[in-house]
């Protein structure tokens, strides 16, 4: 069965990076290709010199690989999925123009969700949160993985990345939305104690039904900047996938967007 998904994303520089004149190290990317819809988000590691570039490479590479190899990845075991994704991301990093050793300069977390037909695959390495909406109720698909301490987590270049990366696959059923957020945005949108999502996400999800894509994207950016960023010193990013409830133009075209 063919369905159409709308995808939005936005990233804003955190107060700490603004104060220290450092770039935003969060990055979101969405890709619609060959009937596969992919939304990816990566959060570059604090003091790594090329973390912003590393986040961009990780999100773009994951989206490309998952869209091209959806059928293979959804059937493969977890270890194979993780190996394919990390090998491709690490290869993209070392082959990037102006690559500066060591690869740890490009460390980032990674979150992605891909949908094709009635199936989805999601992957998550490190902190941040992947959530969803099922029949009007929000749910957490993948919680943060920080290790024991607040300022530690796992990155695309970490020795433990292979064992820490989580892969989720399943039938969509009643799922009609996915939310991907960096740890900065999760500070306001995810309750660590109850492991639940903030009500704001359902309202954001509704915007996808009511407004044009450029309006939703602008609203996402504006809310990250004016409301969500105020609750943290970290960069904030949010990506949304929403099942179109209205008939949409042909989903066969190709589209890529970044934020």
């Amino acid at each position: 069965m063919s369905s159409h998904w709308k995808m939005f994303g936005a990233s804003v520089q955190g107060r700490a990076h603004r104060k220290n004149d450092m770039p935003c190290q969060d990055y979101t990317f969405s890709l619609h290709r060959s009937g596969v819809y992919v939304s990816a988000l990566a959060d570059g590691a604090g003091s790594c010199s090329h973390a912003d570039k590393g986040a961009e490479i990780a999100a773009q590479t994951a989206a490309r690989v998952v869209s091209e190899r959806f059928g293979e990845l959804i059937e493969a075991d977890r270890e194979t999925c993780v190996r394919i994704l990390l090998e491709e991301i690490r290869s993209s990093i070392v082959h990037a123009p102006d690559y500066v050793e060591p690869i740890r300069n490009y460390s980032s977390t990674l979150l992605f969700v891909a949908v094709s037909g009635d199936r989805y695959i999601a992957g998550h390495l490190g902190d941040g949160v992947i959530g969803g909406e099922r029949a009007g109720t929000p749910f957490v698909l993948s919680p943060p993985d920080n290790g024991e301490f607040h300022n530690t987590t796992f990155f695309t270049t970490s020795d433990q990345a292979e064992e820490r990366m989580r892969i989720y696959r399943g039938e969509l059923g009643d799922i009609s939305g996915f939310f991907l957020m960096s740890d900065g945005a999760a500070e306001s949108l995810y309750n660590r104690k109850s492991e639940s999502l903030a009500p704001a996400l359902l309202r954001i999800r509704e915007w996808a039904d009511k407004y044009a894509a450029d309006v939703v994207e602008q609203a996402l950016h504006s809310n990250l900047e004016k409301v969500i960023r105020e609750q943290t010193v970290d960069d904030c990013s949010l990506a949304i996938m929403a099942l179109a409830r209205m008939p949409e133009p042909s989903p066969s075209g190709e589209e890529a967007r970044e934020a």
Binding site: Y190, A200, V215, S222, N223, V227, I228
Partner: peptide, 17 residues
């Protein structure tokens, strides 16, 4: 106004210690 989130719709987490 519909496109502006209020802080009441967010969640509050304690500061990391």
């Amino acid at each position: 106004d519909d496109l502006l989130i209020s802080t009441q719709e967010l969640t509050e987490n304690p500061t990391a210690r």
